[in-house]
């Protein structure tokens, strides 16, 4: 049962042949396949890493760009705001000046009107006084009538003046 005979030589040769055969048919191709796969995986990983980096860069770029755009937009908005404020104040100024001018012209017109009215009134008074004188002269005879007439004339004149000034003033208003 436990004996060493010459079949040990057979076994040694058998085993060496088996090593050679398995090296040829098993270990070489499997190791090659494993290496190939690990290389492939590594390459893929590198590629993915690279793409990731590129995407990250792109994202940063876009972010920066959008930030720039926003800044520009804000600047433009501000500019527009300033412009608008400027235009607004300008318009207001202009309107104010315009109104001022209109007011001045209106005042001037009114003064001129008043002046004109005064001169007319003067003329009217002169007219009335001349008429009064003429009528006084005409109706001297009757003193009683004279007083009556003067009073009548005066009333007439005052009414006329009042009416005229009323009318003038209303127009002015």
């Amino acid at each position: 049962m436990i004996s060493i005979d010459r079949s040990i030589i057979f076994q040694i040769i058998n085993f060496l042949v088996l090593v050679a055969l398995l090296f040829r048919f098993l270990f070489k191709p499997v190791v090659q396949a494993l290496d190939k796969r690990s290389n492939h995986i590594r390459e893929e990983m590198e590629k993915i890493e690279k793409e990731k980096k590129a995407a990250e860069e792109m994202r940063l770029k876009y972010e920066e760009e959008s930030k720039n755009i926003q800044i520009k937009f804000q600047e433009m908005q501000e500019l527009a705001n300033q412009e608008a404020v400027r235009i607004k104040s300008k318009i207001i100024d202009e309107a104010y000046q315009e109104s001022e001018k209109i007011k001045q012209t209106a005042e001037e017109k009114a003064r001129i009107e008043i002046d004109k009215l005064y001169s007319e009134l003067k003329l009217d008074i002169i007219d009335i006084s001349t008429e009064m004188a003429a009528k006084l002269l005409h109706e001297r005879i009757d003193i009683s009538k004279q007083d009556q007439l003067i009073e009548q004339l005066l009333e007439e004149a005052i009414g006329k003046i009042e009416i005229k000034s009323d009318v003038q003033y209303g127009q002015q208003q």
Binding site: S3, I4, D5, S7, Q11
Partner: peptide
């Protein structure tokens, strides 16, 4: 289970 085989492997 043959000592020859075991010894052959060990000798290798």
């Amino acid at each position: 289970s043959d000592f020859n085989t075991a010894l052959a492997l060990a000798l290798i």
